[in-house]
């Protein structure tokens, strides 16, 4: 304690309050995902819909004109028909996939956030652990699925595990970027009111990290979905990934594309959900 005075940081306010945001996040800077091109006018929305109509209608017409076989590419109308009429076949598998995604993600994301919060308080430990986290992110976790199935069987176990392994590090590395933001003046402000370390964490550090935590949660969820579907394709008799395999093997192309459509909608819902959460909890940053 004798040298406590040397540990004080020089009060430096080069960083403006709003600009204290670290934009140099490098490989993990996915903030483009949350920003988007801004509010659209009614005409732009009409244009977006028009493009969809032209592409879908064009596909319908072209497939008809060139007499493309259904096993090569089914018509959009056949896909929609299959989705509606065979939804009873797809539905249970959608629930399986959602169950794996939610369970794995809940485990991975909570560990990721807690680990990020703890590790950023210890710069030395963080420096040691960082490369391994990066290794977890850069290694496709799908590669572990055969091994996990060998050990855990063909049930939910290996899938949930691999979803957690894929989403956790993504959440962690982004959340850590958020927790690493230190705004000396804001922490000093809280301290001047007598705030404890816990209060500083709850009232300053967590809100300040929130935008990056939300970005991490979004990417983690999307990675989790990818991984869940991939794992289902490797083995086991259920889940949307497994249906893709089955429908492809049976040359049931309209059903195959109906599953792809369901997955696309799932992905979009994840994106929109986190976009709205970000709007509510992190809009102060823009």
């Amino acid at each position: 304690m004798a040298d406590a005075h040397l540990k004080d940081e020089i009060p430096d306010f080069q960083k403006q309050p709003g600009a204290a945001v670290d934009q140099s996040v490098g490989v993990t800077n996915w903030s483009a995902l949350t920003s988007g091109p801004g509010r659209r006018t009614a005409m732009e929305i009409v244009a977006i819909i028009l493009v969809a109509v032209v592409i879908i209608g064009g596909a319908e017409v072209l497939i008809d004109v060139f007499d493309v076989e259904q096993y090569v590419l089914p018509r959009p109308s056949e896909i929609v028909t299959a989705l509606v009429s065979d939804f009873g076949l797809i539905w249970p598998h959608l629930l399986d996939t959602l169950f794996e995604l939610f369970s794995g993600y809940a485990i991975g994301a909570s560990i990721g956030i807690i680990l990020a919060a703890v590790i950023t308080q210890f710069p030395f430990a963080e420096k040691i652990i960082a490369p391994y986290i990066l290794l977890l992110i850069t290694t496709p976790m799908l590669a572990l699925v055969p091994l996990l199935m060998y050990n855990m069987g063909f049930g939910y176990g290996p899938r949930i595990t691999v979803v957690a392994l894929a989403s956790g590090p993504m959440v962690m590395i982004n959340a850590a970027t958020g927790f690493r933001r230190t705004d000396l003046a804001k922490i000093a402000l809280a301290r001047s009111f007598g705030a404890s370390t816990l209060q500083i964490f709850l009232k300053i550090r967590i809100p300040m990290a929130m935008p990056m935590i939300i970005v991490g949660l979004m990417i983690g969820a999307i990675f989790g979905l990818l991984t869940a579907v991939g794992a289902e394709m490797v083995g086991g008799g259920f889940g949307l990934g497994n249906r893709l395999q089955v429908f492809a093997a049976n040359i049931q192309m309209p059903q195959f594309f109906a599953v792809v459509l369901v997955l696309a909608i799932l992905g979009i819902l994840i994106y929109v959900g986190f976009f709205l959460i970000g709007k509510k909890w992190a809009s102060w940053q823009s």
Partner: peptide
């Protein structure tokens, strides 16, 4: 830090995620 000392910082130093009144309530929350 001492309860009899109030501090006004450079650049206002308000918390951007809190409304004005919740910024003013911060010392009481703490």
């Amino acid at each position: 830090p001492h309860p009899q000392i109030g501090m006004v910082f450079q650049e206002a130093n308000l918390l951007p995620w809190r409304s004005l009144i919740r910024n003013i309530h911060l010392p009481f929350e703490i």
